[in-house]
Simulated scan of single mutants.
Amino acid sequence: MTTLRFVEHLRELVGDVDVVLSDIWGVVHNGLEAFPEACAALQAARGEGRTVILITNAPRPADSVQRQLRKLGVADDTYDAIVSSGDLTRSFVAERNGQAVFWLGPQRDNSIYRGLDAVFAPLDQADYIVCTGPFDDETESAEDYRGMMQQARLRNLPLICANPDIVVERGDRLVYCAGAIAELYRELGGEVIFYGKPHRPIYERSLAIAQALRGAAVPLDRVLAIGDSVRTDLAGAQGFGIDCLFVTRGIHSEDFEGIDGLDAVQVRELFGHPPRALTRELRW
Rank of each mutant, 00 (worst) to 15 (best):
D221E: 15
G241H: 09
L207A: 05
I160T: 06
D243K: 14
E269V: 03
L234S: 03
V168E: 04
P201M: 13
G171N: 12
L188H: 11
S253W: 13
A217G: 12
G258S: 08
P198F: 12
D144V: 09
G190M: 03
P275A: 12
G239D: 06
F194L: 09
A212D: 14
V223D: 11
P164Q: 06
P158K: 06
A217C: 09
R249K: 15
A152C: 12
Q151M: 10
R155G: 07
S253T: 07
G179R: 01
Q211C: 13
I242A: 05
A235N: 05
G250T: 07
Q266A: 10
I209E: 04
K197S: 08
D221Y: 03
E257S: 14
R222L: 03
P275L: 09
V168R: 01
Y176L: 12
E257H: 15
A152P: 01
L154H: 13
R231C: 01
E191T: 14
L234G: 03
G171W: 13
G272D: 14
R222M: 07
E138T: 09
N156C: 15
L174Q: 07
A178D: 04
V265A: 14
R173L: 04
L270M: 13
P158M: 02
Y195H: 14
G239N: 13
G196V: 10
G215W: 05
A237D: 06
E187N: 13
I251W: 08
R173E: 01
F271Q: 11
V168Q: 02
F194V: 06
R214G: 12
D243H: 08
V175A: 02
D221G: 11
A264Y: 04
A235E: 05
M148S: 09
G171M: 15
V247P: 00
E183G: 00
Q266N: 11
P274N: 07
D228W: 04
D144E: 05
A212P: 00
H252W: 14
E183V: 05
G190W: 01
I251D: 01
D228F: 06
Y176A: 15
E191F: 08
E191H: 14
L270C: 09
A178S: 12
M149V: 10
